[in-house]
Computed example of a mutant assay.
Amino acid sequence: MHYSTQVKPITHLKAHAAEVLLQIAERREPMVITQNGEAKAVLQDVASYEETQETLALLKLLAIGNRQVEEGKTSSLADVAERLHTGIQS
């Protein structure tokens, strides 16, 4: 996706806020808002934002898991199965 097609000055946002929000929701593409010619903000629909946050949370869990493996903080399948069966947590 090329964001260069979705770059608008803040004056456009001020003058066409309802239209911009509708466009963002329909296209599900973020819009870069500029001020004095510089990118200042990214406007995104709520559904896309929520998906991004869920993806980041999953990536964080994967990173934590990878770090634990590197640190040797692992358990055998038999140990995990036993803990699940008996309800013991570590």
Rank of each mutant, 00 (worst) to 15 (best):
S75A: 13
I33V: 14
R83M: 06
L22R: 11
T52I: 00
A57N: 03
E26R: 12
D45F: 05
H12N: 10
L56Q: 12
G87R: 11
E19F: 04
A47C: 10
E51N: 09
H85M: 11
Y49I: 04
S4R: 15
L59Y: 02
A63H: 03
I24M: 09
V46D: 10
A78Y: 02
L21E: 08
Y49C: 08
V46W: 14
K8I: 09
T34G: 15
V20T: 12
E50F: 14
R28E: 09
R67Y: 07
A25E: 01
S48T: 15
E26K: 15
S75T: 07
G72Q: 03
L77I: 05
I33K: 02
T34I: 11
E82C: 03
K60Q: 15
A63D: 08
R67L: 07
V7S: 05
V32P: 07
I10L: 03
I10E: 05
Q35I: 07
A18I: 06
M1C: 06
K73I: 01
T74D: 06
T11K: 12
A18L: 02
L62G: 00
R67E: 14
A39P: 07
Q53I: 08
H16Y: 02
P9L: 09
I24V: 15
L13E: 01
A41H: 11
I24P: 09
V80P: 03
T34C: 10
L21Q: 14
R27L: 13
I64T: 01
I10Y: 05
K40E: 13
M31S: 05
A63G: 06
V20W: 00
T52R: 15
V20Q: 11
Q44A: 00
E54G: 00
E82N: 06
A25P: 00
S4Q: 13
V32Q: 09
A47I: 10
Y49T: 10
Q6R: 09
K60L: 07
V42R: 01
E70Q: 15
V46N: 09
A47E: 13
L58G: 03
L22M: 03
S76Q: 02
V69R: 15
S90R: 11
S4K: 12
V42I: 15
A57R: 14
E26G: 04
V46Y: 13
A57Y: 07
Y49G: 07
L58P: 00
K14A: 13
A81F: 04
T52K: 12
I10N: 00
N36A: 15
L59S: 01
I64R: 10
R27W: 02
D45S: 13
T52H: 12
I33H: 02
T55S: 12
L56I: 09
T86F: 00
E26M: 03
